[in-house]
Computed example of a mutant assay.
Amino acid sequence: MSHNCSLPWRVWRMRPWNTNPLMRASDRWESVLRVLAVVLLLLAVPVAAAVGTETYTRSADHISVANASKTTVHATVLTVPKEIQPAGPVQPARFESQVQWQRDDGNLATGTIEIRHDTKAGDTVQIWVGPDGLVTDPPRQPEMAMWDGVGTGVALLMGAGFGVLALLWCVAQLLERLHAVRWEAELRGLGRPIGT
């Protein structure tokens, strides 16, 4: 007979209701805790999916509302591009210029936007303006809502997994310490003092 048992067989031997008299009470409690940890992790999957779906829905609604209030207008570049961030090892240099455009009420508005380095004063560029008629960021892509939802769900699931693993590790360390103290006490009781 082989002395190496397979993993499923070893797991089956560690079940809390095992009738083996050599299994300590602490081993049974540790087994119960492991079963509860697996149940908690299985319950965390639908909870993470529900939270991720809710985050996706809220983010999609927010993106849709924000994008609906933005419009594009043509603006005239007033100044030559000025470097605002030098080129680095992984990012290109960034430039900005002042631009001027006509608002819905007929008044002229000016603002500063990020622009390409080869743009010249007098060029016409397309910019995004918000409901207040001021420069705003371009609309977010609707696909970003999906990444918000997936990221939230995965983060929640990973947090639950790390929390359960940390709890199991702490309990295992505590039980190992208690077993070591008990073994030491039993070994001291078996040995005779020197000289007797």
Rank of each mutant, 00 (worst) to 15 (best):
P46S: 11
N67Y: 10
I194E: 08
N4G: 03
S64H: 14
G122Q: 08
V65S: 06
P21N: 05
S69F: 01
L41D: 11
L157N: 13
L174T: 09
R182F: 01
I127P: 08
R177P: 03
V32K: 06
V38W: 12
G52H: 06
Q85I: 01
L7K: 02
H179I: 03
H62I: 03
R140S: 12
D123S: 13
S64N: 13
V125K: 09
R116E: 08
A60M: 09
R94T: 05
G191D: 04
L174E: 05
Q173S: 07
H74W: 00
I84E: 04
G106W: 04
N4A: 09
L7G: 00
D27S: 14
K70R: 15
E114Y: 09
D132H: 08
R10G: 06
S97G: 03
V77G: 01
L108K: 08
A160L: 10
P8G: 02
H117A: 12
A50L: 15
L156K: 07
H117F: 05
G52M: 07
A145H: 12
W183D: 09
M1H: 01
F162W: 15
V90C: 00
L41C: 15
W183P: 00
D27T: 10
T76F: 00
T53K: 14
W17S: 13
Y56F: 14
V65N: 04
V164P: 12
S31W: 06
A37N: 04
S59W: 05
N67M: 09
Q141R: 15
E184M: 04
G191L: 05
Q102L: 07
P139K: 11
W147P: 05
A48Q: 11
T112F: 02
A75R: 02
E143F: 14
P21C: 05
V32Q: 06
W183I: 05
E54D: 15
Q102F: 02
N107H: 12
I115Q: 08
V65D: 09
L168V: 13
V135Q: 13
W169I: 08
L165Y: 08
V73A: 01
G122A: 05
L43S: 11
V35Y: 13
S59A: 15
V154T: 14
N67T: 14
E176S: 12
T71W: 02
V38Y: 10
R58Y: 03
Q173L: 13
A50M: 14
N20R: 13
V90A: 07
M144H: 14
G111T: 03
G161T: 15
D137F: 12
G111N: 05
V125E: 11
S31G: 14
E143K: 13
A75H: 02
R182L: 07
E114L: 11
L33H: 05
Q85S: 10
G133Q: 10
R177S: 13
R188T: 08
G189W: 01
L178W: 07
R177V: 06
L108P: 04
N20K: 10
G52F: 07
S97Q: 01
I84Q: 06
D137T: 15
D123F: 04
A172K: 15
I84N: 03
G149H: 07
R28N: 06
T152E: 01
V99M: 03
V51D: 01
S31I: 06
V77Y: 03
V150M: 09
L36K: 01
